[in-house]
């Protein structure tokens, strides 16, 4: 009996002792990396991250686990917890530009520059009407909206989201007023346009392409400086030439990608950057992006940080002006756009 007790205690003691010394510095990466996506499974950010991580894991030679940790406001719970983990490059966070509002919405007390983001890209924004709508061009729509302000119902995902901001910019740039109808996501917003519950829908190309090709909705134009050639449908023109004032704040890229704690060692960031760049040159990634209507931008490092600074200031102040923020952007010294 005593022998067994002795064995038992030594086992426990060694267990504790070993585990405390087991994380000495080694070459990065030697063990699996965890990427925590702060948006729900099956969504755009999730899909991009799963695909990208699968490619990057081949390059880095370790497995990359993708998990989802949703909740809070603008993904604050996931970001909070990943930020608290070791800044050793083994913990990534899957994000998009919509996450920058976590601070002003009261989700956490950090600026976004605690991250070093890697931007895969995004899908351009498109404005569409239901298939049998009387509006043939954006001009028709604007004229109708001017004739009867607030009579045209527009769906653009949830209040304060990226699509909603596009709608607000469109209204501002054209001097019109729309009735915004919020839905809990892009899919229900588009569905509402298909069923004719709303007149207009603004979401991204990736989300609308199948409905456009299936002739369930009809695009009026791209809310993007570039025209878009949709295979199986034809060219969709940019609306910027006819409404140059849209150029002022648009486009706001979706900037889907991932980020690593900014405190991570420089060598780790470089290793990730190299793998990220290599992954983006892979034909599989390019084909996937094309099939799913994403435009790869591939920023990282200083460039990406600046880009996210811009989003942070734009999103935060836009929401502040709507009166739906919990905190003033000034509190976090976020500059006005």
């Amino acid at each position: 009996m005593l022998k067994r007790i002795f064995l038992f205690t030594t086992l426990l003691a060694t267990l504790v002792a070993i585990s405390q010394t087991s994380h000495a510095a080694r070459k990065y990466p030697t063990r699996p990396i965890t990427n925590t996506v702060v948006w729900g499974a099956g969504g755009g950010t999730d899909a991009v991250n799963r695909m990208l991580m699968a490619e990057m894991s081949k390059i880095l030679g370790v497995r990359i686990n993708v998990t989802n940790k949703t909740g809070g406001v603008a993904g604050s719970i996931g970001m909070n917890q990943v930020l608290k983990k070791r800044a050793d490059g083994y913990n990534l966070v899957g994000i998009s530009s919509s996450n920058v509002t976590a601070a002003v919405n009261g989700g956490w007390r950090e600026r976004f520059n605690v991250w070093s983001p890697f931007i895969f890209g995004g899908s351009p924004e498109v404005i569409s009407v239901r298939a049998n709508s009387p509006y043939k061009t954006l001009d028709d729509l604007i004229k109708a909206a001017k004739a009867k302000p607030g009579s045209i119902k527009v769906s653009a995902s949830g209040a304060g989201g990226i699509h909603h901001l596009y709608l607000l910019e469109l209204a501002k740039a054209t001097g019109t007023k729309f009735q915004f109808i919020p839905y809990p996501g892009s899919a229900p917003s588009q569905n509402a346009a298909v069923t004719g519950e709303v007149d207009v829908v603004i979401t991204s190309m990736a989300e609308q392409a199948q409905l456009i090709k299936g002739k369930k909705i009809r695009p009026l134009g791209m809310l993007d400086p570039n025209d878009f050639n949709l295979k199986g449908y034809g060219e969709i023109k940019s609306t910027f030439p006819s409404y140059p004032s849209l150029n002022k704040n648009l486009p706001i890229p979706q900037a889907i990608g991932f980020a690593v704690n900014n405190k991570a060692p420089e060598a780790v960031k470089q290793k990730l950057a190299a793998a990220f760049e290599e992954a983006l040159t892979k034909p599989a990634v390019k084909k996937w992006a094309e099939d799913n209507f994403y435009v790869i931008t591939g920023e990282h490092g200083e460039e990406a940080r600046k880009e996210f600074d811009r989003f942070e200031s734009f999103f935060s102040w836009a929401l502040y002006d709507l009166g739906s923020t919990k905190e003033s952007p000034e509190k976090f010294s976020i500059a006005k756009p």
Binding site: G40, A41, G42, G43, D46, A47, R50, M51, A187, A209, Q210, L211, K213, G214, K215, K216, G232, W288, D291, N292
Partner: peptide
Amino acid sequence: PGSPPAAMLLGALLLNGIIPGPT
């Protein structure tokens, strides 16, 4: 997608190069 698992299934289909929709 009608439910969380169906949404995940959609994501998986997209990842495998199948894009569900009217077409």
